[in-house]
Design a protein around this nucleic acid. Structure first.
Length: 343
DNA sequence: TACCCGTGGGG
DNA sequence: TCCCCAAGGGT
């Protein structure tokens, strides 16, 4: 694109966002590097409406990066419970300690420095640059990918290195330099707003799009075909057995290791063995759950002799479960099977 | 590169 | 019900 085309793009985009963009999201109110980081991590692969109440609670409980760095992991996980992708919460804790201990409490204000923070990749580094510092920080997220793939009629898998390089290259070119009159913060927000509310995955509003004139997908009637959809795969089904011990309104839970699914959360003890190899069991119930990459068919039983094998386990009073993090399906199962006690 | 990592909204 | 996919990062 010529320099004139780039300026035209930037001005049409920002002028549209001035009236049609989002200006009242909680993390737009008084952005600091810390609040921007928290919101960006929460927003990874998670919808805005879902994040808002989590963000509000988080900033109330952990208002500063020092408060977060000093917090207990269980307290942190309790605040993340239900958001999913729990490594984000653990990384955010690491990030706080990193900035406090390695950076003297001061956020790096350049892309390279930001990408050294645990859980911060190229997108998030650009977002912090733009939103927190109002400086040059190109961003390529799902919204930008969709918008650019249509504007420039880019075909091919989004995950491929060629498409990825092309998208980042475009973002670097189209993002205004730090010292230009255009605000980097407003530019980044406008890109996201355009992708999220106008250039939507399904039924985009091309008739009122200020960029329709230069949209190559629209010109060639390929808007619905771009970006190129991912090849779909059928999810494998895994089975799991969970052990149920409920005595005097207390339940026995085990803290899951950090690396696997539901890392860092408290859960019913899990067993992989076939059920018929376990003696003296009582059926409690079953549930199904779909993850991003597999389906889980779970059975919950009571195995009297197995509880003592879990040194890491602890008993929790049912009315204290809100103070720790539990996997959503486990929490739902416990609530369902202890509901009668509340009446 | 492709897989792992959650949950919920909306068509 | 099924499917896509959401302000991605780590490995």
């Amino acid at each position: 694109m010529s320099a004139t085309d780039i300026l035209g793009f930037q001005h049409r985009l920002l002028s549209w966002a001035e009236t049609q963009g989002r200006h009242d999201l909680p993390w737009q109110l008084n952005p600091t590097p810390y609040s921007v980081l928290v919101s960006e991590i929460m927003l990874q692969q998670t919808q805005v409406a879902t994040v808002i109440p989590y963000f509000e609670r988080w900033m109330t409980s952990f208002p500063t990066i020092d408060a977060l760095a000093a917090a207990e992991e269980d307290h942190i996980m309790a605040h993340w419970q239900g958001l999913g992708y729990y490594s984000r919460a653990r990384n955010l804790h690491k990030a706080a300690r990193y900035v406090v201990e390695q950076c003297d409490g001061e956020f790096p204000s350049d892309l390279k420095g930001l990408e050294c923070i645990p859980g911060v990749g190229r997108y998030t580094a650009g977002a912090v640059m733009s939103f927190a510092f109002d400086r040059y920080g190109p961003i390529v997220d799902g919204n930008v990918k969709r918008l650019f793939c249509r504007l420039f009629a880019i075909e091919g898998q989004l995950a491929s290195s060629t498409v990825s390089k092309r998208l980042w290259s475009l973002a670097e070119q189209l993002t205004p330099a730090t010292d230009q009159p255009l605000s980097n913060r407003r530019f980044a927000q406008s890109l996201l707003d355009m992708g999220a509310t106008l250039c939507k995955p399904k039924s985009p509003d091309c008739t009122i799009c200020p960029l329709a004139n230069q949209c190559q997908a629209l010109a060639s009637n390929r808007v619905s075909e771009l970006p190129t959809p991912k090849p779909k795969k059928t999810l494998p089904v895994k089975t799991a057995i969970f052990d149920w011990h409920l005595v005097d309104q207390e339940i026995f839970l085990v803290k899951r290791p950090a690396d696997g699914i539901w890392g860092g959360l408290w859960c019913l003890p899990e067993y992989q063995q076939p059920l018929d190899q376990v003696a003296e069991t009582k059926a409690i119930g079953r549930f199904r759950h779909t993850f991003s990459h597999y389906k889980l068919a779970a059975e919950v039983i009571n195995m009297a002799q197995h509880r003592s094998e879990h040194q890491s386990g602890k008993w929790f009073a049912l009315d204290t479960l809100a103070t720790i993090g539990l996997p959503k399906p486990i929490k739902s199962f416990i609530e369902k099977h202890t509901a009668k006690a509340a009446d």
